[in-house]
């Protein structure tokens, strides 16, 4: 896989089927359904005071849900470029417009937080970037967290000049 900046877009090329599948799974990975810990992490308590939390749930949380959904929809639309024959992936280039960079950063962060909450990764596991091979769904989850983090780092570097 190669990733580079090309004018007003980031380009990911030379994708192998495995990494392409991980990219396709970004939107789905943001879904905290069935994992209360993940839901609690995406919508964390703003205060120890009950009154503030109650107001927050009524007025702020719906806004946050809209914000996260909008970002995820932008990423989902960009990822339609990866639809098609797996054999043609090597020639496929994923263009991410710089204008979509914030949506990607947000969605990748949602996905990383949800996966990490679902698998309850420890600090040690999250800092172990050389862990291999992938022998379980949990290992794959950790790989996803690191891979999505790598994409975040690249996007951050490009938008911060």
């Amino acid at each position: 896989m190669e990733i580079c900046r090309q004018d007003d877009a980031l380009q990911i090329s030379d994708l192998d089927p495995f990494l392409a599948e991980l990219l396709r799974q970004i939107p789905e990975s943001t879904n905290p359904d069935g994992a209360p810990a993940a839901e609690a992490r995406l919508f964390s308590r703003p205060s120890a005071e009950k009154k503030i939390c109650a107001e927050w749930k009524s007025y702020v949380e719906p806004e946050l849900r809209r914000l996260f959904r909008s970002a995820t929809e932008t990423v989902t639309d960009d990822l339609t470029q990866l639809n098609g024959n797996e054999k043609s992936l090597s020639n496929c280039i994923l263009h991410i417009p710089i204008a979509h960079a914030d949506a990607w950063l947000n969605t990748l962060n949602q996905a990383r937080l949800v996966i990490a909450a679902k698998y309850k990764f420890s600090d040690e596991e999250l800092n172990d970037h050389d862990r291999s091979p992938i022998g379980s769904r949990r290992d794959l989850g950790l790989f996803q967290v690191n891979f999505y983090g790598f994409l975040q780092e690249f996007i951050l570097r490009e938008i911060s000049g």
């Binding site: 308590r45 703003p46 205060s47 120890a48 702020v60 946050l64 962060n109 937080l113």
Partner: peptide
């Protein structure tokens, strides 16, 4: 302060108002 915490939550940071 509430506005800042809301923005920080929008970026998915763990932020609280105290």
């Amino acid at each position: 302060a509430e506005f800042y915490v809301q923005q920080l939550h929008g970026y998915l940071l763990l932020a609280t108002l105290e």
